[in-house]
Measured scan of single mutants.
Amino acid sequence: TTTLTYTDEEEARKAAEELKRRGITFTYTKRGGTWEIRIK
């Protein structure tokens, strides 16, 4: 499992869109002031 952490929502959203485009499965979690993208 790879976890990407972002403090900028815009960056996190761009990363999530890129992963979706590649067909990669991930979970997206907001934790306080950070956003976590966990790639399975």
Score class of each variant (00 low, 15 high):
30 K>C: 13
35 W>I: 14
7 T>K: 07
30 K>V: 09
37 I>L: 04
23 G>C: 06
19 L>N: 01
27 T>K: 04
12 A>W: 09
8 D>C: 08
4 L>C: 15
33 G>M: 10
16 A>D: 01
26 F>W: 01
38 R>N: 10
16 A>T: 05
33 G>Y: 07
8 D>W: 03
16 A>Q: 04
5 T>Y: 15
39 I>R: 01
23 G>W: 02
13 R>S: 06
10 E>Q: 13
32 G>Y: 04
31 R>W: 07
3 T>P: 03
37 I>P: 00
33 G>H: 10
13 R>A: 06
24 I>P: 00
34 T>C: 11
26 F>N: 01
11 E>N: 06
27 T>P: 00
16 A>Y: 06
37 I>D: 00
27 T>H: 07
1 T>N: 10
3 T>Q: 04
9 E>G: 07
17 E>Y: 09
14 K>S: 10
34 T>Q: 13
28 Y>S: 05
33 G>W: 05
30 K>A: 09
14 K>V: 07
23 G>K: 04
20 K>W: 11
3 T>H: 06
12 A>I: 02
15 A>T: 09
18 E>H: 08
21 R>Q: 08
26 F>I: 03
21 R>K: 11
8 D>N: 14
19 L>T: 01
2 T>R: 13
32 G>H: 07
28 Y>M: 15
20 K>R: 13
10 E>F: 11
7 T>G: 07
16 A>K: 05
20 K>H: 10
6 Y>P: 00
19 L>K: 00
16 A>V: 12
39 I>M: 04
28 Y>F: 15
30 K>M: 06
5 T>S: 08
28 Y>G: 02
18 E>N: 09
40 K>L: 15
28 Y>I: 15
2 T>Y: 12
16 A>E: 02
30 K>W: 07
12 A>H: 01
5 T>M: 10
22 R>H: 08
28 Y>R: 02
19 L>W: 02
37 I>W: 00
36 E>Q: 05
25 T>F: 12
36 E>M: 06
39 I>N: 01
11 E>Y: 04
22 R>V: 05
5 T>A: 05
27 T>W: 07
39 I>W: 04
21 R>T: 07
4 L>K: 04
17 E>V: 10
16 A>G: 05
37 I>Y: 01
38 R>L: 12
11 E>A: 11
6 Y>F: 15
29 T>K: 07
23 G>S: 03
12 A>M: 07
12 A>E: 00
12 A>K: 01
34 T>R: 13
33 G>E: 15
6 Y>D: 00
25 T>D: 15
27 T>S: 09
40 K>T: 15
10 E>Y: 12
26 F>C: 02
6 Y>L: 02
27 T>V: 09
5 T>I: 15
37 I>M: 02
9 E>R: 06
30 K>S: 08
8 D>K: 07
25 T>R: 12
10 E>P: 04
11 E>P: 03
38 R>G: 05
29 T>N: 08
33 G>V: 06
24 I>D: 02
8 D>E: 07
32 G>E: 12
29 T>G: 06
33 G>L: 12
29 T>E: 14
9 E>D: 03
40 K>C: 15
11 E>S: 13
34 T>A: 11
32 G>L: 06
10 E>K: 13
35 W>N: 01
15 A>N: 03
14 K>A: 13
36 E>V: 14
14 K>L: 10
28 Y>V: 15
7 T>S: 09
35 W>C: 04
32 G>V: 05
23 G>V: 01
13 R>H: 08
7 T>N: 09
16 A>S: 05
2 T>E: 08
33 G>K: 10
25 T>H: 14
38 R>V: 15
18 E>S: 10
17 E>A: 13
4 L>P: 01
18 E>M: 09
21 R>S: 09
36 E>K: 03
10 E>T: 14
37 I>T: 00
21 R>C: 10
17 E>I: 11
3 T>I: 15
5 T>F: 14
12 A>G: 04
39 I>A: 02
25 T>M: 11
15 A>D: 03
12 A>R: 01
29 T>Y: 09
24 I>R: 02
10 E>R: 13
32 G>T: 04
20 K>G: 06
31 R>K: 14
3 T>W: 08
25 T>C: 12
2 T>S: 09
33 G>P: 11
29 T>C: 12
3 T>K: 07
39 I>P: 02
22 R>S: 05
4 L>F: 13
28 Y>D: 02
14 K>F: 07
8 D>Y: 05
24 I>L: 08
31 R>P: 02
23 G>I: 01
24 I>T: 03
15 A>L: 05
26 F>E: 00
27 T>C: 11
36 E>T: 07
35 W>P: 01
8 D>L: 08
13 R>L: 14
25 T>S: 14
17 E>S: 09
38 R>A: 12
35 W>Q: 01
20 K>A: 12
11 E>L: 08
18 E>G: 06
27 T>R: 03
1 T>P: 09
36 E>F: 12
1 T>A: 11
8 D>F: 05
30 K>F: 12
11 E>F: 04
29 T>P: 00
39 I>C: 04
29 T>S: 09
11 E>V: 06
13 R>I: 14
19 L>A: 01
25 T>K: 14
27 T>N: 05
23 G>A: 03
29 T>F: 09
34 T>H: 14
38 R>W: 07
4 L>T: 04
33 G>C: 11
26 F>H: 03
8 D>T: 12
25 T>A: 13
22 R>E: 06
17 E>M: 11
1 T>Y: 15
2 T>H: 12
24 I>S: 02
2 T>Q: 11
28 Y>W: 12
16 A>P: 00
34 T>P: 02
15 A>E: 04
6 Y>A: 01
34 T>E: 09
25 T>P: 13
40 K>N: 14
35 W>L: 03
7 T>A: 08
20 K>E: 10
3 T>S: 05
34 T>L: 15
8 D>P: 01
32 G>Q: 08
32 G>S: 06
4 L>I: 10
26 F>M: 02
13 R>Q: 12
3 T>D: 03
26 F>P: 01
38 R>D: 07
22 R>A: 11
21 R>P: 01
2 T>G: 06
7 T>R: 05
10 E>H: 11
27 T>F: 07
15 A>Q: 07
28 Y>H: 03
29 T>A: 08
6 Y>M: 02
29 T>L: 11
10 E>G: 13
23 G>L: 02
21 R>D: 06
36 E>D: 02
21 R>I: 08
17 E>D: 11
21 R>N: 08
30 K>I: 07
33 G>A: 13
6 Y>Q: 00
12 A>Y: 12
19 L>E: 00
1 T>Q: 11
9 E>W: 08
17 E>T: 08
34 T>K: 14
8 D>V: 11
16 A>N: 02
32 G>C: 10
12 A>S: 05
39 I>T: 03
17 E>H: 10
20 K>P: 00
29 T>Q: 09
5 T>D: 02
25 T>W: 12
21 R>F: 06
13 R>G: 04
4 L>G: 02
32 G>K: 08
9 E>Q: 06
23 G>D: 03
10 E>I: 12
11 E>R: 05
1 T>F: 14
19 L>D: 00
30 K>D: 11
35 W>H: 04
40 K>I: 15
7 T>P: 04
3 T>Y: 10
21 R>Y: 04
11 E>K: 08
31 R>T: 14
2 T>A: 10
34 T>V: 15
16 A>M: 15
1 T>W: 15
7 T>V: 08
3 T>F: 10
31 R>I: 15
16 A>I: 15
37 I>A: 00
2 T>W: 12
6 Y>T: 01
19 L>S: 00
13 R>P: 00
31 R>F: 11
15 A>H: 06
10 E>M: 13
9 E>A: 07
39 I>D: 00
20 K>S: 11
3 T>A: 04
5 T>R: 12
40 K>M: 15
11 E>Q: 10
40 K>F: 15
11 E>W: 04
22 R>G: 04
4 L>N: 03
5 T>E: 05
5 T>C: 10
30 K>G: 04
14 K>W: 06
14 K>Q: 11
6 Y>R: 00
13 R>D: 05
31 R>H: 12
15 A>S: 06
27 T>G: 03
39 I>Q: 02
9 E>I: 04
22 R>P: 01
12 A>N: 00
19 L>F: 10
36 E>S: 02
27 T>D: 10
18 E>K: 06
19 L>G: 00
28 Y>C: 14
40 K>W: 15
35 W>E: 01
33 G>S: 12
23 G>P: 00
22 R>K: 11
37 I>G: 00
